[in-house]
Design a protein around this nucleic acid. Sequence first.
DNA 1: TGCGCCGATTTGTGATCTCAGTATGTGATC
DNA 2: GATCACATACTGAGATCACAAATCGGCGCA
Lengths: 249, 249
Amino acid sequence: MQNAKAISTPDLDQPPQKKGERRQVHEHVLSRMRRGLMVGAFLPGQVLSLRKLAAGLGTSPMPVREVLSRLIAAGALEETANGSVAPPRLGPDKLEDLFSVREVLEGMAAEMAARKATPALIEELTAINTKLLVAIEKRDISGCLSFNQEFHFTLYRGCGSDVILPLIEALWLQFGPTMYMSLLVPSMPWNAADHGAILDALKKGEHAAVKRGIVHDIRTTKRALLTVLGENGMADLPFAARSDLFGDF
Amino acid sequence: MQNAKAISTPDLDQPPQKKGERRQVHEHVLSRMRRGLMVGAFLPGQVLSLRKLAAGLGTSPMPVREVLSRLIAAGALEETANGSVAPPRLGPDKLEDLFSVREVLEGMAAEMAARKATPALIEELTAINTKLLVAIEKRDISGCLSFNQEFHFTLYRGCGSDVILPLIEALWLQFGPTMYMSLLVPSMPWNAADHGAILDALKKGEHAAVKRGIVHDIRTTKRALLTVLGENGMADLPFAARSDLFGDF
DNA sequence: TGCGCCGATTTGTGATCTCAGTATGTGATC
DNA sequence: GATCACATACTGAGATCACAAATCGGCGCA
């Protein structure tokens, strides 16, 4: 996953079209779909239709097919029996597996990033965290998800390895839909408490503490997720996907 | 990457066609390409043409496009400036990054597998290792690669997590072409010494020792790879890809 | 009222076609 | 003999087409 464009696009939605680089349709589709997966446009298990998706995006099915292939390869989507695709439903044990890998991978990335952290990076992270706190205060689910993701990935990008980053991104895309659904339950707590400790450790140059902070943050999220999904008997929560992003399916 | 079919196919080449499952063309293409990447059909940096690939595989470009998309998402292929694809050229630092992630991920998988290891699994691994030793004795490069891969993945499959396995597979696909090229250098040593220690630790139920064995094995491979590629000044080795698998390009 | 069958519709898959951008290779000219 | 220009061939991207399987709907029968 060394090419950053493989799965992760720098989130350019408006056709920037700078330089000789032609803006490809499938790049646009990819960034839309990736964001959609992270902010609740698709529910776990919700079957996505190729043609309807293409219609919603205003293109032919071709670029969508390319994107779906990539998302399947990343584990962000699963093939159903008849070849359709849907975001994965994560059971307790799979969720446990997923978050164990997150701990290892993101802990590693965080520690590496801490070694190379510049004051500018720390300042950037602090600013993002402030926006996250505001979003939490306002009960802005999409804001929470976006700023939390931005906080983590801004840190991880600092590790300087373009091998580990796409792997982490694949993991996030896998639990994104489940994460969003869980946040629709009012009792689901959002905890950004660890971020403060991470920033402190970053400023003090305590690499191991940064790693511990990230791992603790991941464990907290995992526990909350397991609790909420467990309370609801692992059955699907009776919520609908956001239709303001792609239309209905 | 939870669906095992996402990137990794159970290597079914002959149309098994059992049950109601339709054998899809792109699955066949995917398994061919994956094996090709691991046994030297493509060299690092070698540009692959969509149409020629399709012609070599006897299909239309469509299934190939789908497969290339998935391999790009896995990092097994990179997009060139004009949209073509090629296996990545791995420089020393990227190789270092890649193998660091391997240590963490495969170490984790190995330890988990060790906890669940059954006598049957250990016996299977022993048999594979025997075949590997024969291949080494015969200087059979393809055999070495295949059996070594089979040894590792048979162990990792025992970890019972279908989250971590596709990530490891993606990493192997990334360094596969570079690994093959390095083996063409006569001075490249192949070391399966750690496998014996791993099997011993497995039999004794020493989980940590299994993990240590895997990590040591990975470190040894990394060192050998860096040495061989360094000697040749990181320039491309003047070897050709195997044309007996896909034809020439 | 409940169950089963049949047809219309929608599904993904693969092939084909067009188009624009790029590389190639050959020719003429200096 | 070297270099530049133009024409040809080839590249991937996207749209469209064709087909078969599966799904969903409604109708008819028990």
